[in-house]
Amino acid sequence: MNKRAQFDKVSLSFETPKGRLNVVEDVSYDINDGDFIAVIGPSGCGKTTMMSMLAGFQKPTTGNVLFDGRPVAGPGPERGVIFQEYGVFPWLTVKQNIAFGLTLNANHVPAAERDAICDHYLGLMGLSDFANSYPKHLSGGMRQRLAIARAYAVKPQFLLMDEPFGALDAQTRSNMQNLLLKVLQTEGKTVMLITHSVEEAIYLASRIVVVTARPARIKEIIDVPFTYPRDESIQERPEFAELRSHIRQLVMDEYRAQQAQLRPVSFSE
């Protein structure tokens, strides 16, 4: 299988006023073409940091992050990113936000096609009625959908998604998950998704990377035994429940480890 991305003995630490902070430690795994990797771990452990190395915003302190066999030098349109903070452009309307990527030279989208693409994603994300509104009039969930639409619109082969459905209600969330599965089915993407939801990870991913409390190390990599295309019925299967309780246990352990780390600090401060 073709390796798209590789974390090769990657560590990263930040220089802070209180000293060096190890955030990612000795992480190695490969993401193959067509993989759907879900990363799960306690809050603040270093998931976003791990992803931003692949996105090209952060360099590892030691080790290598490779994309298509070459060390990642910076961000690029072949790696679409949906940021945890959405980053919708407040000075553009909803439609202009979606069109933003389409108007860039790098993406070669003829002007005549842009409108249709925008309308397509507006409809898909349920934002048609707000096409000409500014983001200040959108709810948090709508902004998140807008960020997703904008990233999908330029059709990156590799999607990096940082808790993309976190702000959505259960129903919209499940719609978005199914939509993502459909998009993957038709466009054949490779995905790295960060999530806090064990169900979401199992439902969507082909492999789940469970990471430890900070510094993020690999706790376990789990192959999800379901084939694509998937539908919600897999959530009723006994394997799903088994996997869920196993991963929950892992995450819970790390959460406890994190709490234990934090407690002495909060007493002394």
Partner: peptide
């Protein structure tokens, strides 16, 4: 820097 990062991941060059 968030907006600049977003633009970069969508493929914007320096001038854009």
């Amino acid at each position: 820097p968030l907006y600049i990062r977003v633009a970069q991941t969508l493929g914007a060059n320096q001038a854009e």
